[in-house]
Design a protein around this nucleic acid. Structure first.
Length: 585
RNA sequence: GUGCCCGUAGCUCAAUUGGAUAGAGCACCGGCCUUCUAAGCCGGGGGUUGCGGGUUCGAUUCCUGCCGGGCACGCCA
C-alpha cells in the first residue's frame, strides 16, 4: 500500500476528472485523462488538458467543457481549488497538507522512498560494457558502464527484476591476435628475434601479460625464431591485406608449434585481461551478476542450436558456399552471412545464439547498451529475434555516443591505432569516481559528450556534483549542531511548513518517484541527475534564507524534518547514479 | 550514393514525449559572511529553437524539402 505520494495524487486527480467526464460527456468516456505538473506555479500544482482533448468530439468549446467538468468534480480532501486557464486547461491547487504528507512518507520509507511498481517485477536484463578483452577500458567504455549501471539501478527502483550482464568476446580472431601479440613479446623476452606484427596490440599491457606468462611457465612456450617465421607470407609495408594474411598465418603457426599449449596461453591471457577489467569496474562501482562467455555458446552447442532453429523455420539458405540468414524477411536491408565459405561462423551467428539464450532464460525485456557506431547492427538482431518467434520489441538498444575529453579548452586527441587513448582508469584517477560518474550521466546518452576535465576536477562551486553533495552534507551538519535523534522527526507536526519555498521543496520531493519512473520508462537515467540538481538548488536557496535551529520547538522540528527528507531523497537519487552522499565536505 | 542520429542563449546542456510566457549552469555585470559549511544565496542583461513549408485549438517536439555536423553501410568483431 506504500505506493508513492505523487502517483496517489496523480491517479486520484485523474479519477476525479474521469468521474466528472462521465457526467458531462458520456460519449467521450474512452478518453484517457492525463494529469501533468505544469511548469509554472501560477498554473497550479497539477493540471489537466482533458477539456481540450474532448472538446472537438463533443462539439463544444474547451473552456465551456472545462466549466462543466469543474461543476461536476467530486470533493477531495487534497484539493483546495480548481481554475480554468488559457485555452481550456484545468489547474488544480492542492491543500498544504497534501504536500506536507510527503515529508513523513520520506522519513518513514527511507531508502525505499522513490521505489515503485511500474516494472511489475518483470524480468529484465541489462547487458553493458561488453568491451573486447583485448585491451584496457577507455573513456568510451566508461560512459557505457556508468549509463548501464545507473539504468539497472533505476529499473530496479522502478520495480523490475534486473540482471546485469557482461558479454565476453572471448572467441574469434581479435582474441587470437591478442594472444599472438603477447606471445611475440614473450619470445622477445626469451631472446628470440621475432619482429612485432604491425597489426598486433601495441599497449604496455601486452608486455605485462607476457611477463606474467613467463613467470608462470618460464620459457616453456618459447620456440626458435626461424620455426616461427619460416615460410610466412611477406607483408610489405602499407599493404594491409598482406599484413592481415601474415597475421592469419602467424596464428596458424602458433597453434601448430604450441599445440594444446596455445589454448593454455589463451586462457591465461584472457583471465588476466578480464581480471584487469573487473578490477577497474569494481573501483568504478560497477558490478555484474554474470560474465557471459561467447566461447561457451560454441562449446555448449548453442550456436548450432540457434541456427538449426532458424533453418527449421526456413530462414536460412546457401549461396556462394556460405550460409545466409534471410533477415530481409524481417525488415533488414540485406541478408546476412552466418556461416562463412570456410566453415567458420560469423560474429553475428554467436550473437543470434546469445539473444536466443537471453530470451530462453525468461527475460521479458532485454536491453543491450551499445556504442552508437553499432546502430546499423540493430535491425539484423531484431530480425533474428523475430525469426526465432519472439517479439523484437523485447529487445531495446540504447546507444551511447562518443566522449570527447577537454583539457584547458583543448580537445584531448585520442587514436586507437596509436594507442594514445585515455583509459577509464586514468580518468578515474584524475577526476575521482563520483565526478566521473556524474559527468557521464549529466546528459542524454545518445548525445555526444564533451567531458570537461578541468571542471570535473575543480573543487569549486562550478562543479555540479559537489553542489548536490554539498546540499546533503549541509543537512548532516545542521543535524550535528542540533544533536537530537533524526529518527524522532518522522512524528513531527508538519503544519509549520507553509512558506512558498517549503511548498516548492515538498512538491519536488513528491516528484521524485515520478522522476524514477520516467527515467526507467525512457531508459534515461540522466533525468535523475537533473532532478537532483534542481532539488539541491531549491534546498540551498531555502537553507540560505532560513534558520533551522530556532527557539520555537514545533517550527524547529518541522524544518529539521523537511531537511532530513531532502537529505534522504538526495541520498537515494545519488545512489541511483552511483555517486556517494558524504556527510562532511 | 543509401540508411540512422543530431542542430535550442556566447559556451555546455534541459524542456514532463503535442501544452500555457522555451528553462538551468558556465561566462559577463551588480549585491550578500559577527548567524546551523560562502563548495552557498539574491538580482540583471542575453532566443526568429539551423532555414522554408505543412498538419491543429497549440509545434523545440509530428510530416516534408533544403543547409550544416556525426555515425553506419564486410563471408571483421
Amino acid at each position: 500500500m506504500s505506493s508513492t505520494a505523487s502517483l496517489d495524487l496523480k491517479s486520484h486527480l485523474a479519477g476525479l476528472f474521469e468521474t466528472a467526464l462521465k457526467l458531462v460527456a458520456p460519449e467521450a468516456r474512452g478518453t484517457s485523462v492525463t494529469v501533468e505538473r505544469p511548469k509554472q506555479t501560477s498554473h497550479g500544482d497539477y493540471a489537466s488538458n482533458v477539456a481540450m482533448q474532448v472538446a472537438k468530439q463533443v462539439r463544444r468549446n474547451p473552456r465551456e467543457v472545462a466549466t462543466a467538468l469543474i461543476a461536476q468534480l467530486p470533493d477531495s480532501p487534497w484539493v483546495e481549488r480548481v481554475e480554468i486557464a488559457g485555452a481550456g486547461f484545468i489547474n488544480v491547487f492542492l491543500r498544504p497538507t497534501a504536500k506536507q504528507d510527503v515529508v513523513r512518507r520520506v522519513l518513514t520509507e527511507g531508502a525505499a522512498f522513490g521505489r515503485g511498481t511500474f516494472g511489475l517485477n518483470r524480468k529484465v536484463q541489462v547487458e553493458f560494457v561488453s568491451a573486447n578483452p583485448t585491451g584496457p577500458l577507455h573513456v568510451g567504455h566508461g560512459r557505457g558502464a556508468a549509463y548501464g549501471a545507473s539504468l539497472a539501478n533505476v529499473l530496479e527502483a522502478a520495480g523490475f527484476d534486473v540482471a546485469r550482464e557482461y558479454y565476453v568476446n572471448d572467441a574469434g580472431r581479435q582474441m587470437d591476435i591478442l594472444c599472438i601479440s603477447v606471445w611475440v613479446r614473450y619470445l622477445e623476452m626469451c631472446g628470440e628475434d621475432v619482429p612485432f606484427p604491425p597489426n598486433g596490440y601495441q599497449g604496455d599491457y601486452v608486455r605485462t601479460r607476457a611477463t606474467e606468462l613467463k613467470a608462470i611457465d618460464g620459457g616453456r612456450l618459447s620456440r626458435p625464431a626461424r620455426e616461427v617465421l619460416d615460410g610466412l607470407p611477406a607483408a610489405p609495408e602499407g599493404d594491409e591485406a598482406a599484413v592481415e594474411a601474415r597475421m592469419d598465418a602467424l596464428i596458424e603457426r602458433a597453434r601448430t608449434l604450441l599445440g594444446p599449449a596455445f589454448e593454455h596461453l589463451s586462457r591465461i591471457v584472457l583471465d588476466r585481461q578480464l581480471d584487469g577489467i573487473r578490477d577497474v569496474l569494481t573501483r568504478f562501482g560497477v558490478t555484474f551478476d554474470m560474465w557471459y562467455s561467447e566461447r561457451s555458446l560454441y562449446d555448449s552447442g548453442r550456436v548450432a542450436e540457434a541456427l538449426a532453429a532458424l533453418d527449421a523455420a526456413g530462414h536460412l539458405y546457401t549461396q556462394d558456399g556460405a550460409r545466409w540468414f534471410r533477415s530481409t524477411a524481417f525488415g533488414d536491408d540485406k541478408d546476412r552471412v552466418v556461416q562463412r565459405e570456410n566453415g567458420l561462423y560469423t560474429y553475428f551467428a554467436s550473437d543470434i545464439a546469445y539473444h536466443h539464450d537471453k530470451l530462453q532464460r525468461g527475460f521479458e525485456l532485454v536491453i543491450d547498451v551499445w556504442g552508437a557506431d553499432h546502430h546499423g547492427y540493430i535491425p539484423r538482431v531484431k530480425a533474428a529475434i523475430a525469426a526465432l518467434g519472439c517479439d523484437p520489441a523485447q529487445l531495446q538498444v540504447p546507444l551511447i555516443q562518443l566522449v570527447a575529453l577537454y583539457r584547458g579548452g583543448e580537445q584531448v586527441r585520442m587514436g586507437k591505432r596509436s594507442g594514445s587513448y585515455v583509459t577509464l582508469e586514468e580518468l578515474m584517477d584524475e577526476v575521482g569516481v563520483d565526478a566521473t560518474r556524474y559527468f557521464y550521466l549529466a546528459r542524454k546518452s545518445d548525445q555526444h559528450l564533451d567531458f570537461d576535465l578541468d571542471l570535473a576536477k575543480s573543487q569549486s562551486n562550478d562543479n555540479p556534483v559537489y553542489y548536490i553533495q554539498y546540499a546533503h552534507a549541509r543537512v548532516a551538519s545542521v543535524l550535528q549542531q542540533w544533536g537530537g535523534d533524526p529518527g524522532d522527526l518522522a512524528g513531527a507536526d508538519l503544519a509549520p511548513l507553509d512558506s512558498p519555498a517549503e511548498m516548492q521543496i515538498m512538491q519536488r520531493l513528491i516528484d521524485f518517484p515520478d522522476a524514477v519512473e520516467a527515467a526507467a520508462r525512457d531508459l534515461a537515467p540522466h533525468g535523475i541527475a537533473f532532478y537532483l540538481k534542481e532539488l539541491a538548488a531549491e534546498f540551498h536557496s531555502y537553507y540560505n534564507g532560513t534558520r533551522f535551529l530556532v527557539d520555537e520547538e514545533t517550527v524547529k522540528l518541522a524544518r529539521l524534518a523537511l531537511a532530513v527528507a531532502v537529505q534522504r531523497v538526495l541520498k537515494n537519487g545519488l545512489a541511483l547514479l552511483g555517486v556517494s552522499a558524504p556527510e562532511k565536505m
